[in-house]
Write a protein that binds this DNA or RNA. Sequence first.
DNA 1: CGTTAGTTTGATGGTCCTCAAGCACTGTGG
DNA 2: CCACAGTGCTTGAGGACCATCAAACTAACG
Lengths: 254, 254
Amino acid sequence: MRAANSSPFVLKMSAFAALSCKELAVIERLQRRRRVFVLGHDLVHQGQPEPPAYILLSGWANSYKMQSDGGRQIVDIQVPGDFLGLHSVLLHRADHTVEPVVDIEVAEIKKEDLFEAFGRAPRLAMAILWAVSRNEAMVAERLVDLGRRTAVERMAHFLLELGARLTLVGEGSATGYACPLTQYQLADALGLSSVHANRVLRQLRMEKMTTFRDGYVTFDDRERLVGLAGFDPAYLDQDGPFPRQIQGNDKDKS
Amino acid sequence: MRAANSSPFVLKMSAFAALSCKELAVIERLQRRRRVFVLGHDLVHQGQPEPPAYILLSGWANSYKMQSDGGRQIVDIQVPGDFLGLHSVLLHRADHTVEPVVDIEVAEIKKEDLFEAFGRAPRLAMAILWAVSRNEAMVAERLVDLGRRTAVERMAHFLLELGARLTLVGEGSATGYACPLTQYQLADALGLSSVHANRVLRQLRMEKMTTFRDGYVTFDDRERLVGLAGFDPAYLDQDGPFPRQIQGNDKDKS
DNA sequence: CGTTAGTTTGATGGTCCTCAAGCACTGTGG
DNA sequence: CCACAGTGCTTGAGGACCATCAAACTAACG
């Protein structure tokens, strides 16, 4: 149970509500079907009927959609504690592909597992709905990135968001984090060409705001970066770790 | 109860699964708190703590995020049967504003209502999770619009998506639909300037693919439009008859 | 009949894409 | 030990797409 208490998934869910022993047990049970995926082997592919979902235990993954013209848009980057393909599990067919960014360890979750868990712990249904909602909030914020921010702002915002998400599960800090993404992947996530992504990173580095190099993101001047990006982490709804400007502190529900 | 059976919300949920009488009753109860909002009065505003959610009974609404520089990005357009702000109800603060597009009628839903409903009908929790998932799929598809499609493709794709969604709730057809949006709103949804949105609409009209005029969208040549947009409605999860089942809880099948 | 909201068109220029090429590092096999 | 290929990063040049600025036009409305 100490293992469960420190798992990234439990850390994340605890940002929603303190979990009871029973709920922790249901979560533990939900994660019983462990699997490993290596680089190059998709977990879910676009169009797959009745896809399962996964909880990412370690490593990074990403979800993307391909177009007929070969264009690729990464919809979400997932870090430990995140669901993979949760929003596909109830759709008839997966609307996107999920692939590992590095070798990963996951727990497989079938639709029936969810249904069973919901019956056992209605509050867990709320918690999972929260996770999906938070995910949608992140996609929505990316939409603002692509629709209304310049390439530099987008990049800054995205790197800050990843930092905040990683901090929540204990894998990042205000000064930086390990980031296994390539510049191609960053570009596909931000709707840029890889060439331009590279130029933008250079600019951020030369202006001493953030450095992306050798699989590591360093925040050289986090404050200015936040200002440039217009980054307000409220949408991540994780009052715990570092945003303290939020004081909405009404206590948990029934 | 035939009133409930023909409400847009029930029509939509029926695309997920055939609903039992008990579930219909729980849904009916969920919609008991009716309200009206007129143009100019927001339902939810960005930053609002503990916002409620709504079910849109009639009229259109949209959700948007503002930036400090005055830029606006519409994240979602909602039509009858859709939830409003559902993904905010579990976050501690609303991450976006919801405003009417025309005068609307809604049913207000509080967090506790959801919790209660989940306890009464676990399958309804699945259905609502489905609705949220579908919503995320739509936002993701919009992300592809903004990231990887040209302005014309975006516009075509968006107008087709709206048509499909409206058809599901009985307010649209393959030839067109009533659309109360202004070109400014279209532009804000698609990450374009209103000037360019106008040019794009003109192009689509002159090439005889679709006409947007006087509050009505007409598909002049739907086939070519679908080709141009690369529109594949699979992500809406509403195609064909609906042989759905969760667990062994159903009778008929393919 | 002035005001306002929405639509339409023109002109100019910036952001970012595309094409192209070179560099650095790693692993592979002769 | 040295090609050689593969992957990822970096930089340059030219041009397309779309934003911005500006202004005219229409319809609704008091």
